[in-house]
Amino acid sequence: MDKIIISIFILAGSFFILVAAIGLLRFKDLYARLHAGTKAPSFGILLLLIGVSIYFNTPVVYIKSLFIIVFIYLTAPLGAHAIAKSFDNKGKNKKQ
């Protein structure tokens, strides 16, 4: 049973990360890409972490996973924010 849950978590996590990458490629402008590039990967990594933590099932791993999750959820939006804020959408900085 565990095995199945873990597998699902892992596959789902990977899937969401893939989704993010596709979104990154498909979306037309930076903001849209940021939408894709912020939410999905964080979620994916969350799922992955849960799966892997269950797999190892030791306190240290749980704590570490929690750390990572908190950190990612704290920083991912901030990163997106930083990128978005620094983006000069008046076309001055469109290329390079």
């Binding site: 990360i17 940021l34 590039g37 997106a80 990128i83 620094s86 290329k95």
Partner: peptide, 17 residues
């Protein structure tokens, strides 16, 4: 790209990957 910001966003995703 095309902008640096796009690349950074991509870089973020890569790091997650």
């Amino acid at each position: 790209g095309p902008s640096i910001n796009d690349r950074i966003a991509a870089m973020d995703v890569i790091s997650i990957v």
